[in-house]
Computed example of a mutant assay.
Amino acid sequence: MPSREPRRILITGGAGFIGSNFVHHWCDRYPDDRVVVLDLLSYAGNRRNLESVEGRENFRFVAGDICDRTLVDALLRSETIDTVAHFAAESHVDRSILGPEAFVRTNVLGTSTLLEAFRQHWKKRGDRGSDRFLHVSTDEVYGSLSPNDPLFSETTPYQPNSPYAASKAGSDHIVRAYHHTYGVPTLITNCSNNYGPYQFPEKLIPLMCINIMLGQPLPVYGDGQHVRDWLYVNDHCQAIDLVLHQGTPGETYNIGGNNQIKNLDLVQMVCQLMDELASDLPVSPSKKLISFVKDRPGHDRRYGIDARKIKAKLGWTPQETIEGGLRSTVEWYLTHRDWWEPLLSKEYKDYYRKIYG
């Protein structure tokens, strides 16, 4: 990265999974930047994710809602924010099926509130050329691929199939409109499935790791042949960093891991690693815990990202292999029981029973 002026960055959802990994990445790489995290600390937001950076002089945490316009206005003004990295979102498809309203509120109305506040702040500051609003989105907005369909590109038509995907599609459209209508320097990234440290236990990989440690069934939807493209979270953070510094305002960049894997195959990889790395598992081999459950409604069959644009324009490619990234992730959950055990609350267990029985 060439020499740069320090930024004053607001990171929404910075206590969540991808957001907290990005906070660590940014604080380590740019220690002179002012970093402000805004997070509602809902069930998936965890203040402990930020313990190692909380004491830094240039760091501030604010508990609050992106839908709170008064709070957002005050933060942008008092902190003289020039950059927004917008991770805050409701992000779990299963929860969106149970309660879609929360997804519309946070993902659509929250993004709209944040954008309008940033637009007004940006106008008052005057266009300085380096200001940016980056919106982190998902490949799920594109719908589902058949086995022989080409990969999702930035020009693939939107066809969201879940309330979660539809809410993210709506937020993408609002962000794009703010650039084309008002000139706001927005950027959109659409990523594939992330994995790595600090991911809430309801998601596939931590769910498998934790259930193996507890000797509980490993629920696999349907026939287990659904395909996802897996992206290690540190690679994702590197890509967002690059898009913020070198991306063209108004553009969208797809970020993928080049790892299309069937769900059942991925679960079996996790089982093999757990068997290798943990000596005292309740059930061994752990693949005996695999249990097929009724498929969820509208389950997309296949996702896959075509990341040629970000490679050609910005020179980014993922550095972590699925083998190396998955091993690091499994090791993290094995050695951070004190992090995930408190998250298995009554609310989580009630939700789990609703989904898997």
Rank of each mutant, 00 (worst) to 15 (best):
L266N: 01
H245I: 04
V227P: 02
I261T: 11
W230F: 14
T80Q: 09
A177T: 07
F200R: 05
G126F: 14
S171F: 09
N211C: 04
S3F: 14
V136M: 07
F133Q: 11
D65F: 05
S192E: 12
D223H: 08
E251P: 01
R47E: 15
G324Y: 03
F59D: 13
G110I: 10
R302F: 15
I18G: 02
I310C: 03
L344W: 05
S192M: 08
K354T: 11
Q238G: 05
Y30N: 02
G99S: 13
T186C: 11
T12Q: 05
I310N: 03
V93E: 08
R327M: 07
R60N: 11
Q246Y: 15
H86Q: 05
F200N: 07
S167L: 00
Y43M: 06
R337A: 13
D68F: 03
D39C: 09
D33S: 10
D73G: 02
D149Y: 11
T335S: 15
R77E: 15
V330A: 04
A88M: 06
G143D: 11
D94I: 00
K288Y: 03
T83W: 15
Y142M: 13
C237H: 09
S91N: 09
C237L: 11
R47V: 15
A44D: 13
P185T: 09
D280E: 14
V37M: 02
E320Q: 05
Q260H: 02
I97S: 02
A88N: 09
G224I: 07
T186S: 07
G13E: 10
V283N: 05
F103D: 00
S52N: 04
R132N: 03
L218Y: 00
G55S: 03
